[in-house]
Design a protein around this nucleic acid. Structure first.
Lengths: 344, 344
DNA sequence: TTGAAAGCGCTAACAC
DNA sequence: GTGTTAGCGCTTTCAA
């Protein structure tokens, strides 16, 4: 029933010298045998390999790495808001983490996952300085483009999921945010909407770019920008509910919404309904990310699709380039609008 | 398999001897200073600490761990179906991973995330044998209760998210699956449904227990079990679509569905609608997991809620107990039914 | 209070 | 082919 373990001391871990003794050879021979060196007699190698397997012996990678001066681990860092103690929960970030995990596993690279205070992204450098990992993948720039630049200036192998910024020293991979914002807005305009709100915190580079796209589309359509229709809403839904209620209550003219995440879109829909405004009849709502469940929402979400699997693959790809001493250029991934019923 | 990172242009990594030289002291003194030993002169320690920080020096943890014979890393293993090459994507598993990440980070423990072939859970032992991590968290038993038992028999510190089984040697943490299945079924019965289907692969322990709960509820209500109404559907939605279409086409009498994941419930709703059956009017559908987005689905999902954050905390808690040489008993977490519109 | 030296588990010259 | 030996970067006796 219950698992029982011997008190306190784990039995001493098997090591190479044990295998050597049991096989009646020297440690070097074991080392060579297990690394598949051809300098060791076939029969001996066979015997040693077999013995090691039967005893569940595995080379101690700590020692091996120390000796070989290498390290097969990449750290993935998910910034979090220390103030709200917001946890890792946004389905989009989680799915990017999943995609990265897939890609790293396929390449046989170990993945260290950790959170870091979004105000102190620079602390992530410690993971590399201490040799825990050789490279760093940071999910989102948040407000600290500068800290990321500092890390890059130190030549740390870092690749960031996020928007490309002017004066950027680090390599980033990100969706085409400006296009995404544009696509969503244009779609609403094409549907005849004229009072289009923008939900997102433009202090975050990605959101800033999406807002630029939103402006692009408005301008192209000869519509004025209305700062009052821009709500600084956090990606993650937790806090901003009250503010959003006030926002929509005060701006009854709104007939379209560009939200910077699907979560935000869903929250907006909820709030609008509580104000007796129908979606999409009264207000059409576009989300962002096109998370896997977007199609199953009520109503199914029109959303800007971000290619998550590609994102994971590219983040890893660029990091590998850096680690091989090559230069890694920023990558912009294509986005497209998926039209569903929240904004037909 | 192993990627090599030739540190081409990378400057040699700073090490303790460098700091020692720069500070005009011996390595031992630096070591002591950085570990906060009181055996070193206050002023010297101050100077060394300062120097180290200004140079971004961090102790090489690989070397430290080797010397100290310790390791502060826990591995989290997400089984995947190698045949369908199913990736890490189920939102429920992803959110458990998130919860574990939160808990481990709070405790200052490093987290290694990896996938493993669901048919070879035993391969995960290698992560411990090789010293990459000291403990293992496995997300789901899948079909290999036996392999997990073998690992426990080897005294490996392993805790599993899943159902408690008879003859179980390892520690598990899981929701009360039997109760969950019962609650969902009872709810449908109470609503007057009489032909209740069960969707899930009962070869998986968790599903088996939920089915037992489903049977419990039927029996209590004096309803017969109808094997034909049980569909062996995989947790993850990818493959089983065609089978599900056939299933619902053949069983027009079905007026209630107990699904073993929210994803499965959503797929069922889709299929039912394609067959012109309305949810919940014609068929009421209960999901399982109550993922964060369940409330936003179309229709909002009635679902058995699993406490994800608690799950993460308990998994870690039990693993820590094992690592401290204590016995870790299985933990069953409470579940409850959240009623929404898919099964009012 | 500090330094010299041994050794954590492994690999790779360099012998033989 | 195989063994001997010298470290990888660190901590910790043991001496001074």
């Amino acid at each position: 029933m219950s698992a029982e373990y011997p008190s306190k001391q784990e039995q001493r871990r098997l090591q190479m010298s044990d295998i050597a003794r049991l096989a009646g050879v020297s440690v070097s021979t074991v080392s060579r045998a297990l690394s598949g060196s051809r300098l060791v007699n076939d029969e001996t190698r066979q015997r040693i390999t077999e013995l090691a397997r039967s005893l569940n012996y595995s080379i101690n990678l700590g020692a091996q790495n120390l000796r070989l001066q290498k390290n097969n681990t990449v750290a993935v860092v998910v910034p979090f808001d220390a103030q709200s103690r917001q946890h890792i929960s946004d389905p989009f970030f989680l799915s990017i983490v999943g995609a990265i995990a897939d890609e790293l596993t396929d390449r046989g690279i170990d993945m260290l996952l950790s959170r870091v205070d979004a105000e102190r992204l620079d602390l992530a450098a410690q993971i590399i300085d201490s040799g825990k990992a050789t490279g760093l993948l940071v999910i989102g720039q948040w407000r600290h483009h500068d800290q990321l630049n500092d890390m890059a200036a130190r030549k740390l192998p870092v690749v960031v999921w996020g928007a490309q910024m002017p004066q950027q020293l680090y390599c980033n991979v990100g969706g085409d945010n400006r296009l995404g914002g544009d696509l969503a807005t244009r779609h609403l305009l094409d549907a005849g909407r004229r009072h289009i709100a923008f939900l997102g915190d433009a202090e975050l580079p990605e959101v800033m770019m999406r807002r630029a796209g939103y402006w692009d589309a408005l301008e192209r359509a000869g519509q004025p920008r209305t700062p009052g229709l821009e709500l600084k809403a956090p990606f993650d839904v937790s806090s901003g509910r009250a503010a959003m209620e006030r926002f929509f209550a005060e701006h009854r003219a709104i007939d379209g919404v560009v939200a910077c995440s699907d979560l935000l879109a869903l929250q907006a829909i909820q709030v609008l309904r509580s104000l007796d405004r129908e979606v999409p009849a009264d207000v059409a709502v576009c989300g962002y990310d096109d998370m896997p469940l977007a199609a199953y929402c009520d109503p199914p979400l029109t959303s800007v699709h971000q290619p998550v699997a590609q994102a994971g693959a590219q983040l890893v790809e660029q990091l590998m380039a850096l680690l091989n001493g090559q230069t890694a250029l920023p990558v912009t991934l294509p986005v497209h609008l998926v039209v569903r019923q929240s904004a037909p």
